[in-house]
């Protein structure tokens, strides 16, 4: 039993690795897929966004117009450089060809880069249907895509729906001891918006058990305590400021993250 589990885990890991960089040997020698895959591997040797890499992706697609990975990888620099029209056009092709592989990436990027919450939720919902409710992780590995769906619901104003989705995903992961690095924080913010301050504080406490050093946890704890009239909130704000200045905060190289806070926000509350 134990061996079967280990082998299963190994197969899963290998599968994820193959998704990041395709294994061309899985395609028949001489097939258009094998040829396109080999050109794809050459394309990703060039800097992302360089004309050389783009030309190679085009050549891969000329060899095999159904090689979805090339559409996806070709789309990435357009996303990162703000050309969302071209990104979406290419990404749509990748999704059309391999929905179970690329719906999650498209949904995650719509959520993260464009705050297109309705579009992202539609993509993740469809993926959940295709994957028996196991849609996998966000493109950067930060979140289970069910948590992203919950955040979309939250931002669309459906707080009860969001909470239910958070609860379902966290309960599933609790069994596996794999709750995400900021899942409790985001669920706590839903409860804060619902004015369930005790519930929010309980989640922020759970967040500390996952990641003890995060400025946002202290900041939102302070907000909940302040609403309860607890003067200890000032200590939480001071801790938030210290952690923020030390770099212990939500951060992303591309865009600001959900529930990310700034130093002036902490200081403004300290001065009130």
């Amino acid at each position: 039993m134990r061996r079967t589990l280990l082998l299963g885990l190994l197969a899963l890991l290998l599968g994820r690795m193959a998704a990041a960089q395709p294994n061309c040997l899985i395609y028949a020698a001489g097939s258009p897929e094998r040829a396109a895959c080999e050109v794809y591997l050459q394309a990703i040797e060039f800097p992302q966004g360089s004309i050389q890499s783009q030309v190679y992706f085009d050549r891969a697609l000329a060899l095999c117009p159904t090689f979805a990975d090339a559409y996806h990888e070709k789309s990435v620099p357009f996303l990162k450089r703000g050309d969302f029209q071209t990104w979406k056009k290419l990404m749509d092709e990748a999704v059309r060809l391999r929905p179970e592989r690329f719906l999650g990436d498209r949904g995650w990027c719509r959520f993260k880069f464009l705050h297109d919450y309705a579009g992202a939720l539609a993509d993740i919902t469809r993926l959940r249907q295709l994957t028996r409710n196991q849609p996998g992780q966000s493109g950067d590995g930060s979140y289970d895509l069910r948590i992203v769906a919950a955040l979309c619901q939250r931002e669309l104003g459906d707080l009860r729906g969001a909470l239910s989705t958070f609860d379902e995903c966290i309960a599933d992961y609790k069994i596996k001891d794999r709750v995400g690095l900021s899942d409790y924080l985001h669920r706590g913010v839903v409860k804060l918006r619902q004015r369930d301050y005790a519930g929010a504080l309980a989640d922020f406490e759970l967040q500390r058990s996952i990641n003890g050093k995060l400025a946002e946890t202290c900041y939102y704890t302070a907000l909940a305590m302040r609403q309860q009239g607890n003067p200890a909130y000032l200590g939480q704000l001071q801790a938030a400021r210290e952690l923020w200045q030390q770099g212990y905060r939500l951060n992303d190289p591309y865009v600001s993250m959900p529930d990310e806070i700034s130093l002036p926000e902490i200081e403004a509350l300290l001065q009130q």
């Binding site: 001489g30 097939s31 040829a35 080999e38 050109v39 360089s50 004309i51 050389q52 030309v55």
Partner: peptide
Amino acid sequence: RGQAQARGIWAKADIPLVYNRQYEVG
């Protein structure tokens, strides 16, 4: 098509470099 491509031996020399090599997306 097919056999030669499957060996992956042609691509680098086969793609014409007539574009501006400094150009990047965006």
